Amino acid sequence: MKEILREIGMIARALDSISNIEFKEYDLTKGQYLYLVRICENPGIIQEKLAEMLKADRTTAARAIKKLEINGFIEKKNDEHNQKIKNLFPTEKGKNVFPFIKKENDHSNKVALQGFSRVEVETIFNLLQRVRKNVEVDWEFVKKGNKRNY
């Protein structure tokens, strides 16, 4: 069987490394920019939904969100219906950095898909969505404390 996940992992690590270097001047590190982008795209999102969206465990998400808050990129606000729930919003600083992050993402997509036809790009996208959906089943299963049979 082809080592597809190995290839996906190498691509993800390379792009993450590039982003960490390029976003250093904004004090964004270790994938925090991923959280900031999703908060900018979904103002008012709650931490649990954000972690689920990024397929991150709660502890990792809480750490990244805390750093973003400390560095002034986001703020937590009480939910108007339930005071126990904190909604996440970008601050002006976060909103100002968002276009740069988006621009970097668009550039990385363009570079990664260079030389592919529109049909090939659509095919890659659809196939990767299917891969993600397959993996999500195991992710949910293991997240609930279950063990997979190999």
Rank of each mutant, 00 (worst) to 15 (best):
21 I>Y: 09
26 Y>W: 15
105 N>C: 05
113 L>T: 06
145 G>T: 02
92 E>M: 10
148 R>C: 08
63 R>N: 09
148 R>G: 02
6 R>C: 00
39 I>G: 08
150 Y>F: 07
53 M>F: 01
150 Y>H: 06
13 R>H: 09
16 D>C: 12
83 Q>L: 05
81 H>N: 15
125 F>D: 07
84 K>F: 05
48 E>F: 04
82 N>G: 06
115 G>N: 07
44 G>Y: 13
88 L>N: 05
140 E>H: 10
139 W>C: 03
108 S>D: 15
145 G>A: 00
100 F>V: 15
7 E>P: 00
20 N>D: 15
55 K>I: 04
51 A>F: 01
61 A>L: 03
64 A>V: 04
77 K>Q: 12
129 Q>R: 06
51 A>K: 02
9 G>C: 01
111 V>T: 01
145 G>D: 02
140 E>K: 07
26 Y>E: 15
34 L>N: 14
93 K>Q: 13
17 S>T: 12
57 D>N: 14
85 I>M: 10
145 G>Y: 04
43 P>C: 07
37 V>T: 15
42 N>Y: 01
82 N>C: 09
29 T>E: 13
65 I>W: 02
21 I>M: 05
68 L>F: 01
130 R>F: 08
108 S>P: 11
30 K>G: 09
13 R>W: 07
40 C>Q: 02
141 F>P: 10
14 A>I: 02
47 Q>P: 14
69 E>A: 06
25 E>P: 11
149 N>S: 14
55 K>V: 08
41 E>A: 11
120 E>R: 11
4 I>R: 00
47 Q>I: 10
110 K>T: 11
9 G>S: 05
4 I>H: 00
46 I>P: 03
45 I>C: 07
84 K>Y: 06
26 Y>I: 14
11 I>M: 04
107 H>V: 05
54 L>E: 11
32 Q>P: 12
48 E>S: 14
66 K>M: 12
139 W>N: 07
20 N>M: 10
47 Q>G: 15
132 R>K: 04
137 V>W: 06
115 G>H: 05
81 H>W: 03
108 S>C: 07
119 V>W: 08
100 F>Q: 13
101 I>D: 07
52 E>M: 12
50 L>S: 02
13 R>K: 12
104 E>Q: 13
129 Q>G: 08
46 I>Q: 03
49 K>M: 06
84 K>V: 09
